[in-house]
Every structure is written in C-alpha cells, then in structure tokens.
Design a protein around this nucleic acid. Structure first.
Length: 269
DNA sequence: TTCCAGGCGTATC
DNA sequence: GATACGCATGGA
C-alpha cells in the first residue's frame, strides 16, 4: 500500500474503506467516534497501541503515526494489502450480495487480536452491540488496558460483578484460565486446520458454534469462517435457503460482513 | 410491561 | 440429533 507522510500523519487513498462501516459494524467494539475537522474520526486500539484515524472522502489519515508503525501494525490490522474492489466484484455475481456491497462497500475485515476477539465475542452472546461496548469499556477502564489472560485468570465471576456482564462472567473466567495456563495455545491454534481450531475453541465454556466462528474470522483471519447469528439466520432463510452461492467460496466471512450490515439496515427502515 | 439482543449449556426425548 | 428452556442486563 502506497502512502505519503504529512508531518506526523500518514495518508493513503483508499476507495474501499469507510471508517464508520468498518469500525462501527459489530466486528470490533473498542473504537470510538470523536468530533474533528474531518468527515469522520475515530480513536481506538490494536492491543495496547493507540490510534486516531480520520477520513476525508477517499483519503484516510493515520494521525501521529510513524512509517514503521504504519507498515508493521496498521497495514496488517486494516488489511490494506487486500484488494477489496476485486472481492466485491467477485461477490457481486450474486444479486443480493451485489446490493449488500453497493450499500456498504467500505467495510474491511479487521485482523484483530485473538485473545481480545475471544473475550469480546463471549460477551456478545445474547446481547446487543451498545451493551457489549459498555461491558468491554468497563473492562478496559478497570485495568487501564484490555486485560491479559493472566490478569483475568485472577478474577472470579463475583469479582467481575462491576462489568455487569451477567451470566457471561463465568465464561470469561474459564477462557482466561484455559489460555493463561497454556491448555489452549494461541499460536498453535493459528496453525491448526480450521475444524480442529474450532473444536479446541469450543472446549471453552460459553464458546459455541457462533462465537467460535467469530474468533476464527475476526481473530485469526480465517475468511472462510461464517458466523451465523440471528441476523444472518434471517438472511439465509430469506435469500439462500439452499446455501451460499459459489462466488463466496473461500471468503464466506467477508460476504457475511456485507450481508450483516445490509440486513440490519434493511430491517431498521 | 414485555420483548429482544452478533448464543450457549443443560435436560429430555 | 433435535428441540425446549433458562440465563443477567438494559434499551426499546
């Protein structure tokens, strides 16, 4: 990805990137929209690395960032070396997916941290997005950063009462125990065939079919993973009773992102 | 007040 | 293996 340095900022031109659609579409829960002189600005983190990022039209501005951080961290996190025009062209062979891509063509799949994704999507179950954000916000505020598995393994469901996460607190504790003890190794997980990785993830209490697919997709960049939540279930029943079209092969998860955003807005209006 | 939210564990058949 | 139900919390 070509970029230009402008004082302390890094700038790119990227037509397939919209900050609202990417950072506020329910794949990540720790980005916050803030006021600015730009069209759109967010602040947030990848692990413990802070970023303020803005958009003016097709220009994306990474504030107070070095070339080194841009190349080593943010290029990967925002998946900037993947051609989303090409992906959308492929998906647009299907009529419904074409509508979804046209509706929100600025969605990108974020390459997020595995541990944070695991905890975030455990919290997401039977929950709504504003409340998920609230719980994760309280979690990070309490520790001053997103807590590690070791830090959380010292907690109990009761000591996590301040989160108001309800029945999910015991699941968070179980996940932190299994990861911090090494019973489940994040690096090994990434090397496994997808079915084995999924099976391993599902040994964690509170991690079932849907949450494990989310961890595979958002935390391990397994683009063939296909999380089915209540919204995607409606999509499948309405548009794909016989299964996904062939054009989604290998990138089912990216198709899922466009469809998720599309159906939610369709039913809102 | 009742229903629902990026589901899962458990009981029961 | 499939189906039914409870679960914490808070916004609509």
């Amino acid at each position: 990805m070509e970029y230009t340095v402008n004082k302390n900022d890094i700038e790119i031109i990227c037509p397939d990137f919209n900050l609202d659609e990417t950072l506020d579409c329910g794949q990540a829960f720790r980005w916050e929209k803030i006021d600015s002189e730009y069209d759109i600005t967010y602040k947030g983190f990848f692990v413990d690395r802070f970023l303020r990022i803005s958009q003016n039209g097709e220009k994306i501005i990474f504030h107070d960032t070095t070339s080194e951080d841009f190349e080593n961290v943010w290029t990967d996190y925002f998946d900037l070396n993947t051609d989303y025009s090409k992906i959308k062209l492929q998906l647009s062979e299907d009529e419904t997916l074409k509508k979804a891509c046209d509706f929100a063509g600025g969605i990108r799949l974020l390459k997020q941290d595995l541990w944070e994704t695991l905890v975030s999507f455990i919290i997401s179950q039977n929950n709504n997005i504003p409340r998920i954000k609230g719980i994760i916000s309280r979690l990070c505020e309490h520790y001053g950063h997103f807590p590690t598995a070791v830090e959380l393994s010292a907690e109990t469901p009761e000591s996590l009462d301040f989160l108001r996460a309800g029945f999910r607190a015991k699941y968070i504790v179980d996940a932190s125990m299994k990861i911090s003890s090494g019973e489940i190794d994040a690096d090994q997980l990434k090397q496994m065939p997808i079915a084995d990785a999924k099976k391993t993830l599902m040994t964690i209490k509170g991690v079932g079919n849907k949450v494990s697919e989310c961890v595979l997709l958002f935390g391990m960049y397994r683009t063939e993973a296909f999380p089915v939540d209540v919204w995607i279930k409606r999509v499948m029943e309405s548009y794909y009773p016989n299964g996904l079209p062939d054009c989604t092969k290998g990138i089912e998860g990216i198709a899922q992102q466009y469809l998720f955003h599309y159906i939610r807005n369709l039913e809102k209006n």
